[in-house]
Structure formats: C-alpha cells, structure tokens
Design a protein around this nucleic acid. Structure first.
Lengths: 259, 259
DNA sequence: TCCTCTAGCTTGGAC
DNA sequence: GTCCAAGGTAGAGGA
C-alpha cells in the first residue's frame, strides 16, 4: 500500500464525469491496483476512486502541463469498463509504501440474514398459531423471506400440545378433513421503507394466483418501519410487525430452537 | 489528517456488531474526528469506520490487554447514536500527520438531473407529437420527472409547422373543439430497476384519478433498463425508452433548445 | 456470466 | 428533525 499526500487535481470519466480542483489530498494506492482520493473530512467514501481490476501508470507531464506546475501524472484505467481517473500532481508532500499482507476479513452479526434466521426460529413473534413452511420460499420473481402457515385446527387441539411443529404435525394427520391451511408470506427487513411494501405486494400478487397457496396474507417484519411504509402496508392489507433484535437474540440463546 | 499503519484488531458495536482479527492495516484519522480502517485491497469502502460527529480517545491498555500485546487502545464514539469503534493496537509501524486544508469539493456531470434536463429539451426522444407540460410536475405523492402531452390535432396541421411548442400553441388556439390532450408521465432514471416501475405506477394511479389529466400514459426512460423492469413495465402498459446520454448531449450542444 | 437484493449503505433535499 | 430518493452506488449470492 502506497500512501501519498499531494497537491493535485483529479478528473474522472466513466459512467459520469467529475472534476476535483487543485487541493491537497491523500492518495491511497492499494496492492490490487485500486486508487482512493481522500480529503480531510467528509465521509468514509473517497472523493474519487478507481475500483479493481485497474492499473495505475505514472506519466511525465507534457510541456504544457509542466508549465502549469504538474510534476507527475497518474492515469488509472479500469480493465473492463474503460473508466479512467487522471490525477495531476503538482507537489508531493509525503510518499511511503507499506506491506500490509492479506487481511483476514470482517466478521459481522446483526445483518438481515441473522434477523431472518432468528425470526424463522421464533415465528410466534409474527402471530399465534403459525408454523414455518420454509425460509427463502421460492417464487418465479425471487424468494420470499419466510413462508408460514396457520395451524388453527380447532382450539381444543392446541391447548395440550406444544406450539409449532407438533401442533402442525397433528393437524396434518387429522383424519376429519382438515381446514385448509392459510399461508403467511413474511418480508424481513432491518429498516422497511415503501420499497419493502412494494416488494411484498409483488410476491403476494403472484402467490395468491397459486390455488395451492391462496389465500396468502402478507406480513412486513422489521426493526424499524417508516411511517409511510406502515400506511401503505395498511392500505394493502399487509400487517406490520416491529422486531426487537436483542430480545430475539436473548430468547434464541436461552431456549434451544425447535427446528 | 493522521495516517497510522498498525497491527491491530478492531471491534464495532452499533447498528450491528463486527470484528476484525489482528492484522496490519491503515488507520486514517480525519480532521473531523472520523476514523477509517483500510486493508490493502478490497473496496473503496473501509473495513470499519466511524462517521462524524465522533471523537477519538486514546487509552492506555489495562494489565490484561497489555499482556496480550496491546500497546494502545483507540476508542471512537459517535456523538449521537452511541455506536463505538474499539481499535486494539499491537504495533505502530507508521505514524504521520498532515494538514490538508479544506477541499473545494467535487463537480459532477451526467447524474439523473442532467439526464432529466436534456430529455426535457428533447421530448421527441420519447415519441412524436409530444410537448413538454413541465418538469417536476407536482402530485400529492411527489413530483413526476416530466409531464408531456400530445399535440395530435390532425395530421394536416402538423405538416407545415415546427414540432413542439409552435404546434402546441396552434392546437390550443384551434377554434373547432380541439381533441382532448392525452398526457404522458415520464420517469427518468440512469438505471431503471423494478422500483422505478413501481414508482411510476404509483404516480399513474394517482394521475389517472384526475379528470383534467386522464388518460395519462406512462413512459420509463433510462440509460439502462433491467430486464425484469422492462417485463413488469410491459405488464402494466408502461412504455420503456432507452436513452443515449452522449447522443442527447451532442444534440443539446449542437442545436439550441426551444425552451 | 447476468441479475437480483442488501447495505453499519451514505448523502442530499424537501417538508 | 424525519422521510424519501439517488448513487460512478458496491458487493454478495443465486440462477
């Protein structure tokens, strides 16, 4: 990794064009060829950058550029897209190179996948008398996060059996023509916006065309739900459930899961 | 801006928890207090970071940590959210500080706003016999990018007048009861996905309730349109138009706009 | 490979 | 402040 502090101007041409006037900035040239241009402040996102695969070539400025004070010209070209970054360096203030080795990588917890996994183990959070059919239930337009079905075969049955799988098995085995299972499609999000409601609506539209599944009810489950998303969901008959990740994690660690 | 190369492990707790095992990394401490943790390679995004407003405090490791080889402990705390980043430094390999000054900022061209502006000047790209009503046409749920209307008042009229405004004016002034104008709502995107179709659908639903506007046809105009978005648009009777930004820009620079 | 969806998204703008 | 939409979104994961 090469770290350069330099007075420079930068031009990007590619999906759009962007220009950075002359100023002092940090240039990070990584081992994979990528380049980041950072200012002191702003966001974690560089002002300009080039993602790998790309190559950096250092050129000597032509007479005109040299006259303007350019001492070095860095050209970073993307291997496929043709995007290019041009760094006109007027003054190098710092220049060091370091060998960092390979990074072991990041371990995360608490992303949507974790939320979905926990919720699959605790479908009672969504409502009573529900059992998991499967996670990532496949449809033609993509997988539904969770597919559940009701296990309401009469109150008397549910009293003396454990909730979840056992009751579900009982219903399935009921000799007297069982009430048709009603399905519940659950969309899991960390933060749900209008787009989440739209997504679930598309799934429901499709699922309800399938006579084996219909009627399918929709539930939007998220750690936070935008007010407009809640309103839109209400309009469309979609229930919303706010999830408490820490509480769900507590239950998960305390009680062994049924599945 | 302070640049540190160090062998360190990092823990983030906040919206999720994340852990980085011991390895050599770049730490960038910016003037606004923010911290970036970069590896040599990967993306332009740091492995871990803390966004401003936040403060960095350097602590002396306790006996236990010192025994594990920690020589310095950086704690970065977000001012509002309570998110925290903990950097356990085992070895400092490089440590320099530089004054970069304030960055003049980035100038962009080719973003969605530019596309919309160009398209407003060249509505014929959408179809013949159309005139701009206005950009950012207001509705209760937000502005429609472009609202157009047809100027089809009979072919004979259109032959000997310039397209666009002039023809439109003529139609408006036509003494023999003019055919009602048909409206076209255009959603402009650089890249259109399913969400763009959903957005336009919401607008059309609303616009078509207005007897002054109905019937309103929908057009999705974008530099690239995802296949599923094109399919969904087709299902809903929404036309799609693929835009060539460079070509449109060429026309714009060559021919003065009518508006 | 293409195409989809998530993201500690971030960031800017409107209300 | 909250909420929504754009992003050179990037990056992962499935078909």
């Amino acid at each position: 990794m090469r770290l350069v502090i330099a007075r420079c101007s930068v031009d990007y041409t590619g999906r759009l064009t962007a220009h950075l006037p002359l100023a002092t900035r940090l240039l990070v040239h990584k081992g994979d060829g990528s380049l980041l241009v950072h200012s002191d402040g702003g966001s974690y996102k560089p002002l300009n950058w080039m993602s790998p695969p790309c190559t950096l070539t250092v050129e000597t400025p032509d007479a005109e550029a040299a006259e303007e004070g350019v001492v070095e010209l860095w050209r970073v070209t993307h291997a496929k897209s043709g995007d290019a970054l041009l760094v006109r360096i007027h003054e190098v203030i710092h220049d060091t190179t370091h060998d960092l080795g390979v990074d072991p990588g990041l371990i995360k917890d608490g992303v949507e996948a974790d939320l979905q996994r926990l919720l699959a183990e605790q479908v009672d959070v969504i409502g009573d008398g529900l059992a998991l059919v499967r996670r990532e239930f496949p449809t033609a337009i993509g997988p539904v996060d969770l597919m559940l079905r009701t296990v309401t075969a009469g109150v008397s049955v549910e009293i003396d059996v454990p909730p979840g799988v056992e009751a579900d098995v009982h219903v399935s085995a009921a000799p007297a023509g069982p009430a048709p299972a009603r399905h519940v499609a659950v969309e899991v999000k960390r933060r749900a916006g209008i787009d989440a409601v739209e997504q679930l609506t598309r799934y429901l539209e499709l699922l309800n065309r399938d006579p084996h599944l219909a009627p399918v009810r929709g539930v939007l489950a998220a750690q936070s739900i935008a007010p407009q998303a809640k309103t839109l969901a209400g309009d469309r008959g979609i229930d919303t459930v706010v999830l408490d990740y820490d509480a769900m994690k507590g239950i998960q660690s305390g009680i062994p899961t049924l599945f």
